[in-house]
Amino acid sequence: MLLIGTVTVSWYLAVGAVLFVLGAVCMATKRNLLGVLMGVELVLNGANMNFIAFGSKVLRPEGSLGLDGQLIALFVIVLAAAEAAVALAIALNFYNNHNTVDVDRANELNG
């Protein structure tokens, strides 16, 4: 049945939503710092999926965002790369100083 229905923007939004939620839950539950980072990547991809879906002329010729959707998706990809670099630097710093990557033990700034 699913195979016969036409792919619409909603389908892409649904996939994006699932990826977003998976990433968010991943960020919340993982204790490994790098696992949290992976959750962030999933969240960014879920959001990107929405931009692509709204910018796609294949899915919705009338009223699509057009090029803006793809451009913003490009910016998201680039910024995600930057974010990953900084986050990794922080993670490695944390690991060097505390000999752990457990985010629960990063509580030095607790009042």
């Binding site: 892409y12 692509i52 910018g55 796609s56 899915l59 793809q70 998706a73 490009l74």
Partner: peptide, 9 residues
């Protein structure tokens, strides 16, 4: 993304 027509992205 390819399926949605955004080949470059």
């Amino acid at each position: 993304f390819f399926l949605a027509g955004a080949e470059f992205v």
